[in-house]
Design a protein around this nucleic acid. Structure first.
Length: 548
RNA sequence: GGGCUUGUGGCCUAGUAUGGAUAAGGCACCGUCCUUCUAAGUCGGUGAUCGUGGGUUCAAAUCCCACCAGGCCCGCCA
């Protein structure tokens, strides 16, 4: 949790001396160019705006106040804000400060069936989930990331069966498995017969240890491939749980019997009736369990070790999320916090992506092309000098993560190569480049060693400098909102806005070779910017570089 | 048919939770700025009935209702 206390809180309490029911939300940083911070008084009866103004002016950090209709427009002392941020960074190493929260949070994401390599459509879920988990860690929570591995359904059985039928004499590789998977689906579609797979599901469900071992071995090959791809873009998952574990351990059976008072039956199949009348099935009529039953068991498992569960799912699972929530709250008296984040799909201009159809753009492919493009640009910028592969890779990965994260999760995306390979404007390289500029200023400045002990004068700042300081000051608010709404994309958008603001500062306010007091102040400004960008980058997965 | 969700300049997006001042950016296009901390940058310009129609309000991109269009779901699949 953040230690930060904003000046808004202090101001609000001062204002309450005149307006007892004043709410902090009527105090906001101004984006229309009238002032720094505005007080809106529309909702309240204010007899004397002038006396409110004088009271607010008593706050040392308010340097000016102007009444404009129902608005009270304030100018804030930028030097004060800058010194707040600077002292936080020099004493604790970061702004805002943070303290460890004992609450344990579980973040489940990705959880794709290991029937093929991860593709651009799926990786959105991973990027959002990973960013949320890093965001909560930054906020002080104890976070565990989770992946639920489906090894018991039709898709997994088909993958295994295909290997067993066509390629069992060969060493299983992701490519070989994928080829067999596509082939067996074509055959099943052709013959219309799925009996072989169905029999196998039944055997699996009965807990046949030899079969489970073999299927997991095959699934493991694909899963390792997925893990490797995720690792490349900086994503690590702590805990992998296999669906079949809950079948083998008998937890699914225990769960179902614990629900026996509420369960209804259709023939031999067991289901629960939801409040809206929907029937949700837990078992088939042959007694085998269904995904919902196993996922309830999985959620119970996660609940046993966490205080707050977050599950990132594709939007096709939104009904499932609703069902789970209803079951956990009504039948298991869940009091812990349970959140689902749904992401809309990424499609191609030609339509949806599908591993089975083979028209998906894999993450590998995306990384490769983006990296190539990145190398090209570096070579171009450096005037033909050799490019640095490590820097190119970091730029590529950051660009990929940023491009996918920056769009709100609920919004459908169309993947276009031209957008993916554009490193201008609203992109990670823009932010990374601004960061390099800040580093260069700090590196080249001669007074940097004394920066810890400097005091700021009260001299008026340039417009661009003031704007940057104010924008940086709001970082903790952005961070808190992102946590509250589970919207890591807010940080991506903020990082871009802040970098744009830094670029304005960079163009207009020279740091080196100015009057010493000006140099120092601007150096501190650049240092705070550097710190915030490092902080955000570690959350949204931008891999900063020292030169570009 | 029912449910969920999205609709903002030519294209892409932010803002919608908690209504508040001339709707904020990016791409593309036209023009500007490198002997000064890296031009992957800066500044200026063109370009918006915020899907449509009603309603609530002193005030609506934001709240309510209806409609239109796209996406997703409505399985003893996962």
């Amino acid at each position: 949790m953040l230690m930060y206390q904003s000046i808004n809180e202090k101001l609000a309490s001062t204002i309450r001396r005149f307006i007892p029911d004043f709410k902090e939300e009527d105090l906001s940083f101004d984006r229309t160019g009238h002032c720094d911070l505005t007080v809106r008084t529309f909702r309240y009866k204010v007899e004397n705006m002038e006396s409110l103004k004088s009271a607010v002016l008593e706050e040392s950090f308010v340097t000016n106040a102007v009444v404009k209709g129902k608005y009270l427009n304030l100018t804030i002392d930028s030097n004060y804000l800058l010194s707040l941020m600077h002292s936080s960074i020099s004493t604790t190493g970061q702004y805002p400060d943070v303290f460890q929260d004992p609450e344990r949070v579980s973040v489940e994401h990705t959880s794709i069936n290991p029937t093929g390599p991860i593709h651009v459509g799926r990786v959105r879920n991973s990027i959002i989930g990973d960013s949320i988990s890093r965001l909560l860690k930054r906020f002080g929570y104890r976070v565990t990331t989770q992946y639920f591995v489906n090894d018991s359904g039709k898709q997994m059985m088909s993958l295994y069966l295909a290997y067993d039928k066509y390629n069992s004499d060969k060493q299983p590789t992701p490519e070989l498995l994928l080829e067999g998977y596509r082939r067996i689906y074509r055959e099943m579609e052709g013959t219309g017969s799925e009996t072989e797979v169905e029999e196998m599901i039944k055997k699996y469900e009965e807990g046949d240890p030899a079969l489970i071992n073999k299927v997991r071995k095959i699934a493991g090959v694909m899963l390792d491939d997925i893990k490797g791809d995720l690792r490349t873009i900086g994503i690590k998952i702590d805990d992998f749980t296999w669906e079949s574990d809950f079948i083998v351990s008998g937890e699914v059976k225990t769960l179902i019997s614990s629900l026996s008072d509420s369960i209804k039956t259709d023939g031999e199949a067991k289901y629960l009736e939801m409040k809206d009348g929907r029937k949700v099935f837990l078992t088939r009529s042959d007694g085998s369990s269904l995904y919902l039953a196993r996922d309830i068991a999985y959620h119970m498992y996660k609940l046993s070790q966490s205080d707050w569960l977050i599950t990132v799912l594709g939007e096709d699972h939104s009904e499932h999320g609703k069902t789970l929530t209803e079951i956990l709250t009504t039948y298991f008296d869940l009091v812990k916090r349970l959140d689902f984040v749904f992401n809309a799909f990424v499609s191609l201009e030609t339509g949806s992506m599908s591993t089975r159809k083979g028209n998906a753009i894999t993450l590998k492919e995306l990384i490769e092309k983006t990296c190539e493009r990145s190398k090209e640009i570096i070579t171009e910028k450096r005037g033909g000098k050799t490019s640095n592969d490590e820097i190119a890779m970091k730029i590529a990965i950051s660009a990929i993560r940023f491009n996918i994260l920056k769009v709100s999760a609920s919004k459908a995306m169309v993947f276009r190569w031209e957008d993916a390979l554009d490193f201008n404007g609203d992109s990670a390289p823009f932010i990374m480049y601004s960061y390099v500029r800040a580093l260069n200023i700090i590196k080249k400045s001669v007074v940097s060693s004394d920066i810890e002990n400097l005091t700021l004068s009260n001299r008026e700042l340039e417009k661009e400098e003031r704007a940057l300081v104010l924008n940086m000051y709001t970082y903790p608010l952005i961070l808190s909102e992102a946590v509250k709404n589970l919207k890591p994309e807010a940080l991506a958008n903020y990082a871009f806005m802040l970098s744009k603001s830094f670029n304005d500062f960079y163009e207009k306010c020279k740091v080196i070779d100015q009057e010493q007091e000006v140099t120092i102040r601007r150096l501190i400004t650049a240092t705070v910017y550097k710190s915030i960008i490092e902080d955000i980058s570690s959350i949204i997965g931008i891999q900063l570089v020292k030169e570009m």
